[in-house]
Amino acid sequence: MSETPSLRRIWLCADDYGISPGVNRGIRDLITRGRLNATSVMVVGPVIGRDEIAMLKTAAAARPRCAIGLHVTLTAPFRPLTMHFRPDNGGLFLSFPRLMLAGLARRLDPVIIQSEVAVQLAAFVDLFGRAPDFVDGHQHVQVYPQVRDAFLAAVKDAAPQAWVRQSGRLRPARSLRAPKALILDFLSAEFRRRAAAVNLAFNPGFAGAYDFAGQPDFGALMGGFLEGLPEHGVIMCHPGFVDEVLIGLDPFTVQREHEHAYLAGEQFPELLRMNNVTLG
């Protein structure tokens, strides 16, 4: 008699809690349904008041295990929490391409970056009364050159028991049809090495990056994300409802509603079952 293979436990993490009321509501809805088991919070977001935090804590407390992390944000259109943050663009963070290029050219000041990450960590502790379960980065800033060492140093100092999110696949593909994933694979290899050097835990695999501009079939994408994802791997997602606040801050809008609809529907649990995966 063949043995039934054990279930793979993965993290399905909704990014961007705090960016808008509709995104917050969508994430809480999926946590309540048991369709997410992690979310990361933007403490620099415009919708991050005590009431929104209280509702998130209530939703998470009703589930057996829902991790809440810090979504470190260092890119526009958001503003730093620290004074004299540089480089900036009229008081805003740089765009993510400019930040990445500045890191590659070694034009960033790691001390300034570490201070901003430390202040965001402290803001999370003030809001939740505890350190984050994990720490990741908006637009994957945590894996950028120069940013990564400052990020890891701040986490090691303030939340050494937290795990950090690396954005590389377990078995990187060579296809040039997914350039974003290839860049993340390359940058994450060094991030993993440096995280291990300072004894910070990180997820063994990652999935969820895709080109949302064409509004692809999210259900089909999820099938690919689950394929080969190891135990404790992370799938990043961005569910939510579109509102004026979101439209003013982020180009990723309607596709968030498509993600929410799929994750809330009945096809998703069946996909998990077919792949022998659990969020519980």
Rank of each mutant, 00 (worst) to 15 (best):
C237T: 15
R194V: 08
V119R: 15
R86H: 13
L108W: 03
G224M: 04
F85N: 06
V135E: 11
A159P: 03
Q215K: 14
L263D: 02
R174I: 09
L12M: 13
P179E: 11
M236E: 04
A264E: 05
L271K: 09
F191T: 01
L226D: 05
D51H: 12
G137S: 07
P230V: 01
K180D: 06
A38V: 03
H140V: 01
L92I: 01
D157K: 13
G168F: 10
R50M: 05
T39P: 05
G214L: 09
R130Y: 00
F93H: 12
V147A: 08
P269S: 06
I235G: 05
W11G: 01
T253V: 14
R65Y: 01
Q114G: 14
A67W: 14
T75M: 06
D185M: 07
P230A: 05
A196N: 11
G233N: 08
S2C: 00
D250V: 00
A38I: 03
A60K: 10
L92K: 09
G248T: 03
R35C: 08
P216Y: 08
T82W: 02
A123D: 12
R169V: 01
Q142S: 13
E244V: 02
S167Q: 04
A14D: 10
A209Q: 15
A122N: 05
F93W: 02
L99W: 09
D157F: 04
L74T: 05
H71L: 07
L182W: 05
F191N: 07
R63S: 13
D250T: 02
G208H: 08
T39I: 08
T32I: 06
D217T: 00
L99E: 04
L30A: 09
D51N: 07
E244A: 15
G233F: 01
M83Q: 13
L104V: 15
A14H: 07
H232S: 13
E270N: 01
G223F: 12
Q215N: 14
R273N: 08
D88Y: 00
E244Q: 11
L200S: 10
Q120T: 04
M55S: 12
L263V: 02
A14S: 13
Q215Y: 03
A261T: 12
V254I: 09
N37T: 12
F151Y: 15
T278E: 12
P204V: 11
P132S: 11
G233P: 10
G103A: 12
I112G: 00
D51F: 03
F134V: 11
Q142E: 14
A181S: 15
T39R: 02
D126L: 11
P77I: 05
S167R: 00
P251I: 12
A220N: 07
F96D: 08
M274Q: 15
N203V: 00
L184Y: 07
W11I: 13
R25T: 15
Q255C: 06
L272F: 02
V119L: 15
G34S: 04
I31V: 15
A201Y: 03
F128C: 09
E257K: 07
A189N: 02
D29G: 06
A59F: 08
Q267A: 15
L249M: 10
L187E: 11
V119F: 09
I53H: 01
H140N: 08
G265Q: 10
G137Y: 03
